[in-house]
Design a protein around this nucleic acid. Sequence first.
DNA 1: AATGAATGAGAGTTCATTCAT
DNA 2: AATGAATGAACTCTCATTCAT
Lengths: 191, 191, 191, 191
Amino acid sequence: MRVKDSNKRALIFDASLVLMYREGIAGLTMSKLAKKAGIATGTLYIYFKNKEELLHELYVELRHKSQQRFMKNYDSNEPLKIGLKKVWVNYLKHRIEHHKESVFLEQYYRSPYITPEHHKLAEQMKSPVHELIRRGKREMIIKNHVDDEMLFLAMIGFIRELADETMSNVYELNQQRIEQAFQLSWDMIKM
Amino acid sequence: MRVKDSNKRALIFDASLVLMYREGIAGLTMSKLAKKAGIATGTLYIYFKNKEELLHELYVELRHKSQQRFMKNYDSNEPLKIGLKKVWVNYLKHRIEHHKESVFLEQYYRSPYITPEHHKLAEQMKSPVHELIRRGKREMIIKNHVDDEMLFLAMIGFIRELADETMSNVYELNQQRIEQAFQLSWDMIKM
Amino acid sequence: MRVKDSNKRALIFDASLVLMYREGIAGLTMSKLAKKAGIATGTLYIYFKNKEELLHELYVELRHKSQQRFMKNYDSNEPLKIGLKKVWVNYLKHRIEHHKESVFLEQYYRSPYITPEHHKLAEQMKSPVHELIRRGKREMIIKNHVDDEMLFLAMIGFIRELADETMSNVYELNQQRIEQAFQLSWDMIKM
Amino acid sequence: MRVKDSNKRALIFDASLVLMYREGIAGLTMSKLAKKAGIATGTLYIYFKNKEELLHELYVELRHKSQQRFMKNYDSNEPLKIGLKKVWVNYLKHRIEHHKESVFLEQYYRSPYITPEHHKLAEQMKSPVHELIRRGKREMIIKNHVDDEMLFLAMIGFIRELADETMSNVYELNQQRIEQAFQLSWDMIKM
DNA sequence: AATGAATGAGAGTTCATTCAT
DNA sequence: AATGAATGAACTCTCATTCAT
């Protein structure tokens, strides 16, 4: 039965995210995971070879799903600032609305489970923004004397902090502040 | 009698950082730690009541040591931009030269060991930069219409990404790029 | 799935008694216990939350089982001396045939595991004999000027010593000696 | 320095008794013992080869000291009942006033430390009462058809229970009850 | 003789994984 | 496919004993 199958996979992934978010990577045990997902421990091993592979597959899935969200509503025919803002806000919203996933990705990244393949996937996530930065430079709107990666890091780092502090209730975001924050980023990178 | 070695605390802390950096919080076991530190497991329990307390005390110590580094060479009589740059660079250098410590602080922050007390300590670390931002606003140099915390997050997020990508060999920093990066931050926050 | 073996609880209890009898409470370790019971250490923790609870539950079970044995074959319609003798012999036989259990109960009683609840259970064990003593006083057969508890202690102490010295091969009991011993107790308490 | 030496031995013995009484044999660790005695753990190993020997020597000492107390004030020229009563009361008082010691002797008796030598010592303790019983039989005052050991056990078991229940506040002794209790024992063994 | 830091074997317990049902 | 009891290696921590001072 195919539908049931993929349902259970998603169920397990969800439970993993919740647990990891609540108790960190150390709190993610197979028995807690099974209980949270409402299945038996043995069942986990029907869907995944072992814990390592479960986490690896979750990692890959999250990376792909994340990437798709970044370019949502982006239209290359619109002016650069409009397009960049869309992607910028997509990143921010993604990190807030899928915060558990973001935290998982980072927690996982610093664990004994990590392999070189993961690094490559992480690099790929950057491409949409890098593409926009290159376009901005061609259009003489974005600072030409600063390398792409630095501009990228400046923006992404800000977004990340904004989202994390929002999620931990240290900072409170609203529409106006989002506009303001993007404008800060823009002030920074614009020519 | 054998005298209690005051180096041993530092020795254990060092070994903890190395292990945590290499294998994440899940890889930090008391027996690995003892082996790395070159002592017996039982000895760990002479210096620390248990694993939780060991990590807690390491956390507190690192927070304090970090804070001290941030304000190094800062002189409130110098012009704001000079002062801010010093602190900005201190943050960056700290995160690069003491990257293991920074990673530990963040790993620990997302673990079952965390308590409210830790959150308070984390907030305290922000004060030096906040102080500078307020001064900049009073001196009409820094954007008055943006709240302190947002300006802080924008800078700190950038620094963080710069340092982390440098440490993972994805990006390469040099003196010129550091100047450039600070200038980007400045462009962003200046009036 | 593998069904939870209802025998396993009893198996673990048996192994606990054997070990405790042979090496005292200090010799009762979870790994020795598992080995003796022919199971893995982890299995112990499926049936009991921890060592303390295992011992507590064994204690409660033994108290109940003991109590049941004391009143075996007792018939309140029979003459007092007949009834008392039955209970008296039941106590003696119980302590001999279930000597390991008796020793466990006493060892456990003097251990850091003990709680007030245990004391109450211990008191309850006395009630059958106390009941008989009261009846004997009403029937003007047992010394009225001596309090119940003292008469109880006099009998129970004797039984205990008889059983223990028998079990350690210092004394040898036989049917005639049992009769004689009861008669001594009777001489003591009778009017 | 000789005095100092034996002082420390006594100090260690005292601390052992207190600890054992309070927490059972499982609570008697070398470090707790040292702390209680106000000395360093290493010092214990100057006075005793190891834990086993410490306990063994304490056992032997207690056995000897106990024995001496039993015959206190006994005068073989006095009538049997007077003499027996003295010894009987000595046993009772000993077990109450030196209850910690009595408990230690029994706890120790059921521990992995026990050797055949201990059994022999235990047997020796019985001799004073056995001697009196034999005398009573010669004087035709004590039941001739019951063997010495049984009469001994009947008395000693009663004494033991009386003392233990008194110490655990379940029973309350006074002079009158002591007289009564001895009289019960006497009723039992007299011809 | 006295100290208490240091040791490491072994205690209690957890947990990824297997297996009988 | 699904279960959860069973496993045993590995974890955290304790403790009898040793050793440098």
